[in-house]
Nucleic acid binder design. Structure first.
Length: 656
DNA sequence: GCAATGAGCGTC
DNA sequence: ACGCTCATTGCT
C-alpha cells in the first residue's frame, strides 16, 4: 500500500496558479489533493507541483469537488506551508490588476507577496491590537469637505476623494487621522507614500494617534526576514494601520476601511517590474473590489486625479481661497532676461537675480533657513543659447544637444543622432554661445553659498538625504524629492530647477515641474509671516501661474483639457510595445486592436537602433479591450516559443 | 498493414 | 523539461 496516493475525501481537487512566466499559461491548473495533504492544503497556501515534468512553485487558489479538465490529474507534490498567503480577495485583486495591464497574474503576485522566510513564519503571531479610540481630526476642518470625508470613514460609509493639501500642511498627521478614524471602526487602513523617508514620517504620526501596536510600516529595504515578519503581521490581522511604499499597495490588510496614496504624481508610485502597475490604479481597483474608501492626496494634482474628479467618481477636498491665501508663501517668478542682477558684488558675480538674493537675505536675517532646489545630479544636461535661451538643437535632425558628462571642453553632440557640433549657431538669434542649463543652476547654488559666507550650507540629495533641519539660518541645497522639512518652516525657497524641468519634450513636464515646486514651496512659511518663493522661470507659463496663485486644481484641469484635445493620456489609454524590429512588426500584425485603436510608429528605440517601439492608442472605454488584445498576443507568442521577447507596457509613465 | 522513430506541442 | 500525439518511414 506504500506510495499509493489517494485523493482527499472532501473537495479533492485543488486549483493552482503555477509560477511560470509564460503568458499562455496564465490560468489555474487542477491537481488532486492527496489524502495525506488534506489538512495542509488550505486555500491560499504555497504549493509545489509537477508541471510539464518539472517541479514548480504555485499558489493553491481553492479546493473544489470536481475538475472540468478532461485528462488525467496529477497529485499536488507538496504543501510548502499552510500559511494562507494568498487570500481570496488578493487573488481577485491580482487577477484584476493583471487584466487591467494586459499582464499575468503570477507577475502581479511576485510584486504582491514577499519571499517566504520559514523561521519567521514559525514565530508565534503577535496579539491583535485593541481598537484605537476615534481620532480627533480637527486638522480636516480647514477643508470644507474634509470633515464630511472623515465622518463617512468614522461611520463606516464609503467615500472617495481627491485631496489637495494646503501649503505648510502637516500631511502625515492628516493621513494618520484618516487611518485612525477607519481603525476606530474596527477596520483596516493602508497608506502608500513615495519613499521610506515619508514612511517614517507617516508611521510616527500614526503611532502618536493609534499606538505602536496598531501600526506596521512596510518597505522593500528591510531585508527578507523583517520584511516577511511585518507582512505576515498584516496578513494575520496584527496591525490595523499599514504604511508603506509601492509594493505595500498589495498588503493584505484585514477588513480594509480606507486606502490612501500620497503624492500620486511621484514616479516612485509606478512599479518598474511587469506589468508595471501604478499605486493609484491598484488602490482604485482595491477600493472598487472591497467597497473601501479611497483618498488620493498631494500638494499638486495629477491629470489622472483630475479625471477621477471630472468623472464624478471622487469629489475634491480643497481649501477655500481665503485659507490658501493665508497659508501660501509669496511666490515670484523670474525669467532670465527679466532678471535684474543683485547689486551686492558677490551676488552679482554669482549671477543671482536681485529678488532671489533679497528673499534669501531677508529670510536668513529673520533667523530662518533657506531652501534651494537644484536639478537632480545626472539629470539630462540640456544646452541652450546663452543669449536668447532657446534650447540648442542639432542642425541635422533637430535633436537636443548635450555635453559629454563631466566635460565642458569637448564639443556638444546630438542626443538623437550622435553627431558632434563644434560650431553651434543659434537658429533664433544667431548667437554662437551655449550655456548648460543644469550646470548653470548647480553653479548658482554654489555661488549663493559664497554670497553668504557666514551661513552654513547643508546639502540633501540622492547620496545623502536629510530629513529635517533646524530653525536656524542656513542654506539647504536639495534635489527634488530630497527636501528636508524645516521645523518651523523655511523663510524662503529658491527654485532653480525650473530651467531644466520645463525644457523637456515630456508629456508631463509641466505637471511634474509644478509638483516639485509645490512640494518645495509647501515647506516655506506663509507669505503673511514673510515666507517667499522665487522660481527661476518665465512667469507666463501656466505651471508658473498655478504656483503663483497656488491653484493645483486649475492646473490639473488645464492639463487634462489639453491632453484630451491632443489625444494624450489619461484622456486616452496608451501602450508601448518594445522589442527587436521584426518582433514588434509581427506583434502589431497579429494584434487584434479594437477598431477605434491606432498604431503610432514603430520608431527606433535608443542609440543602437536594433530595437523599436510602437505606441498604441485607444479611447478610454476600449482600454479593457486593448489590455485583452495585448495579453492574447503575448500568449500566442509564448505558446509559439518566440525567442525575441516583446515588452508591453500599458499606461506607461513616459512615452518617449 | 503496421511497428518504429522523431518532431512538435501542450503543459491539470 | 517531460510525455503525449501524430506524421513519416521502412519493413513484412
Amino acid at each position: 500500500m506504500k506510495g499509493e496516493k489517494v485523493p482527499a475525501e472532501s473537495l479533492p481537487v485543488g486549483r493552482v496558479v503555477v509560477d511560470v512566466p509564460l503568458a499562455h499559461l496564465d490560468r489555474p491548473f487542477d491537481y488532486l489533493v492527496p489524502s495525506t495533504l488534506d489538512e495542509a492544503a488550505v486555500p491560499g497556501c504555497r504549493v509545489r507541483v509537477r508541471f510539464a515534468g518539472q517541479r514548480v512553485d504555485g499558489f493553491l487558489l481553492e479546493r473544489i469537488a470536481e475538475s472540468e479538465h478532461k485528462g488525467r490529474l496529477e497529485f499536488l507534490d507538496r504543501v510548502v506551508s499552510s500559511e494562507p498567503v494568498l487570500p481570496k480577495e488578493m487573488a481577485a485583486l491580482a487577477r484584476a490588476v493583471a487584466d487591467r495591464y494586459g499582464g499575468t497574474m503570477i507577475d502581479v503576485l511576485r510584486l504582491a507577496i514577499p519571499p517566504r522566510h520559514a523561521r519567521v513564519e514559525a514565530e508565534p503571531p503577535p496579539e491583535p491590537p485593541a481598537t484605537p479610540a476615534a481620532a480627533d481630526a480637527t486638522g480636516w476642518r480647514r477643508y470644507p469637505r474634509g470633515a464630511a470625508f472623515l465622518d463617512a470613514l468614522g461611520e463606516g460609509r464609503r467615500a472617495q476623494a481627491v485631496w489637495q493639501a494646503l501649503p505648510g500642511e502637516d500631511w502625515p498627521a492628516r493621513l494618520a487621522e484618516v487611518a485612525a478614524t477607519a481603525a476606530a471602526t474596527g477596520r483596516g487602513a493602508l497608506l502608500v507614500v513615495p519613499d521610506h523617508r515619508d514612511v517614517a514620517r507617516v508611521h510616527a504620526a500614526c503611532v502618536a494617534l493609534a499606538g505602536e501596536a496598531a501600526v506596521v510600516a512596510l518597505s522593500a529595504d528591510l531585508g527578507p526576514a523583517r520584511r516577511y515578519r511585518r507582512w505576515l503581521a498584516v496578513l494575520r490581522g496584527a496591525a490595523r494601520i499599514v504604511i508603506g511604499t509601492r509594493a505595500a499597495a498589495f498588503a493584505p490588510v484585514a477588513a480594509p476601511g480606507v486606502f490612501a496614496v500620497w503624492d500620486d504624481g511621484d514616479d516612485l508610485h509606478s512599479d518598474p517590474r511587469s506589468p508595471y502597475p501604478h499605486v493609484r490604479d491598484v488602490l482604485v481597483q482595491r477600493a472598487h473590489l472591497s467597497g473601501a474608501s479611497l483618498l488620493v492626496g498631494g500638494f499638486a494634482r495629477t491629470a489622472e486625479a483630475q479625471l477621477l474628479v471630472d468623472s464624478g467618481w471622487a469629489p475634491e477636498i480643497v481649501a477655500t481661497r481665503d485659507q490658501v491665501r493665508a497659508s501660501a508663501p509669496r511666490v515670484t517668478a523670474i525669467g532670465e532676461h527679466e532678471s535684474q542682477l543683485a547689486r551686492d558684488p558677490a551676488a552679482r558675480a554669482a549671477r543671482i537675480p536681485l529678488v532671489a538674493f533679497d528673499a534669501a537675505r531677508t529670510a536668513l536675517a529673520a533667523g530662518h533657513p533657506v531652501l534651494v532646489q537644484v536639478p537632480r545630479a545626472g539629470y539630462v544636461p540640456a544646452l541652450s543659447c546663452q543669449d536668447c535661451r532657446t534650447p540648442a538643437r542639432c542642425r541635422r535632425c533637430a535633436g537636443p544637444l548635450a555635453l559629454r558628462a563631466g566635460t565642458e571642453v569637448s564639443p556638444p553632440y546630438c542626443r538623437w543622432c550622435g553627431a558632434p557640433d563644434a560650431t553651434f549657431r543659434c537658429g533664433t538669434c544667431g548667437s554662437r554661445r551655449l550655456r548648460a542649463m543644469v550646470t548653470g543652476a548647480r553653479r548658482t547654488a554654489e555661488e549663493l553659498g559664497r554670497a553668504f559666507p557666514d551661513v552654513p550650507v547643508h546639502t540633501s540629495g540622492a547620496s545623502q538625504v536629510l530629513s529635517e533641519v533646524d530653525s536656524k539660518p542656513a542654506l539647504v541645497i536639495a534635489t527634488p524629492g530630497a527636501e528636508p522639512v524645516a521645523r518651523t518652516g523655511y523663510g524662503a525657497a529658491l527654485l532653480l530647477d525650473g530651467w531644466s524641468l520645463l525644457g523637456r519634450a515630456d508629456l508631463r513636464a509641466a505637471e511634474e515641474a509644478l509638483r516639485r515646486w509645490m512640494a518645495a514651496a509647501a515647506l516655506v512659511r506663509p507669505g503673511g509671516e514673510g515666507g517667499r518663493v522665487v522660481v527661476m522661470t518665465e512667469s507666463a507659463l501656466p505651471a508658473v501661474q498655478a504656483l503663483v496663485r497656488w491653484d493645483p486644481a486649475w492646473h490639473a484641469a488645464q492639463e487634462l483639457a489639453a491632453r484630451t484635445e491632443l489625444g494624450f493620456p489619461p484622456a486616452v489609454r496608451m501602450a508601448t510595445v518594445d522589442g527587436p524590429a521584426k518582433a514588434v512588426a509581427t506583434f502589431l500584425d497579429e494584434l487584434g486592436l479594437p477598431p477605434s485603436g491606432e498604431i503610432l510608429g514603430p520608431v527606433p528605440l535608443g542609440e543602437e537602433g536594433e530595437k523599436e517601439r510602437a505606441l498604441l492608442r485607444v479611447p478610454r472605454p476600449d482600454g479593457r479591450a486593448l489590455a485583452a488584445a495585448l495579453a492574447a498576443t503575448q500568449a500566442v507568442r509564448t505558446a509559439r516559443k518566440e525567442p525575441d521577447p516583446v515588452r508591453v507596457q500599458l499606461d506607461p509613465l513616459d512615452l518617449i
